[in-house]
């Protein structure tokens, strides 16, 4: 397509990575009714074209052009306040909850404009699961946490189907064995790492195509962090994952592609091993070698 103009930086990375199958929707995914998305034809899960974002007068993102490839893990790195969360939260329009914000440019999700006026935000968010820095299980039972979304979105019929979906989601989140005997217990009794995996299961239960993770392990101990990382590794066969992380090693371990943000701009994006071994940009190099940030 127009890759030249999409990547203004001097990146040589080719987003069309060989060996990655065409981004079709996996068989295990229930399509949202209508199947509105243009998934089958879209080369990228997410595509930003000169996307800028403002909180009031404060510009948080400036002219971001970035493509995120289907079924890969893309890590967003950069110092605090550089706009990683803002970019992530634009993809499912969570920033709509904040008053006095505005944007310019284009942001496409599976080929369709996220911000187009007739976009149904509910359907959009169902395609995009989100996991937050602070685990936020609902004050309900473990079962209810996973079941609530599918039930509200009418994705299942009957108790049996619902139970099947809950089990499948919990298994996908590598939590089933730990909670299968206490599904009716409060989710708030779980450990921090378990709560975070429960939130992942909750997000998976509504069959998203894309999983956004905003520093999902930054509040967890090393062992729980490792479990989350293993989980990300498992999930990337089926999902497009975008993860914000402050942890360089984590970005290097889990991601295929790394994008470095600085002061609201996208400085460099490329294959993770390229970025970490041979960054093109001095700022990128300074950041990943720990000279600032």
């Amino acid at each position: 397509m127009m890759e030249e103009s999409l990547l203004p930086m001097e990146t040589k990375w080719n987003p069309g990575v060989p060996g990655i199958p065409a981004p079709t929707v996996g068989a295990s995914h229930a399509l949202p009714e209508g199947g509105k998305q243009v998934a089958a034809g879209a080369p990228f899960a997410v595509e930003a074209r000169s996307f800028s974002f403002w909180y009031g007068a404060n510009q948080a993102l400036a002219d971001i052009s970035l493509t995120i490839t289907t079924r890969q893990v893309t890590a967003l790195i950069g110092p605090s306040g550089c706009g990683k969360s803002t970019f992530l939260r634009s993809i499912n329009r969570m920033n709509d909850l904040i008053p006095n914000t505005r944007h310019e440019g284009e942001l496409l999700l599976e080929g369709g404009s996220v911000y187009r006026p007739d976009q149904d935000v509910v359907l959009l968010r169902r395609r995009v699961g989100m996991v937050f820095q602070k685990s936020n299980p609902f004050p309900k039972s473990i079962f209810e946490n996973v079941a609530y979304g599918p039930r509200v979105n009418r994705l299942v019929q009957g108790r049996r189907q619902l139970e099947g979906l809950v089990e499948r989601s919990l298994r996908q989140a590598a939590l089933w064995d730990e909670v299968k005997d206490r599904l009716e217990k409060s989710a708030l009794g779980l450990s921090g790492g378990q709560q975070q995996r429960l939130c992942i299961a909750r997000a998976l239960a509504v069959s998203p195509h894309i999983l956004l993770m905003d520093e999902p392990a930054s509040a967890l101990d090393p062992i729980a962090t490792q479990k989350i990382e293993e989980l990300i590794y498992e999930l990337k066969d089926q999902y497009t994952i975008v993860i914000v992380t402050h942890n360089m090693q984590q970005a290097a371990r889990v991601s295929d592609v790394t994008a470095f943000f600085y002061l609201g701009k996208l400085v460099e994006v490329g294959r993770t091993e390229e970025i970490f071994t041979n960054p093109k940009n001095d700022q990128t190099e300074a950041y990943i070698t720990g000279r600032f940030g």
Partner: peptide, 15 residues
């Protein structure tokens, strides 16, 4: 009620 709880629900597509 923590803001994260509201965001978690909205991110699931709840009105």
């Amino acid at each position: 009620v923590p803001r994260e709880l509201r965001e978690g629900a909205r991110a699931l597509g709840f009105t």
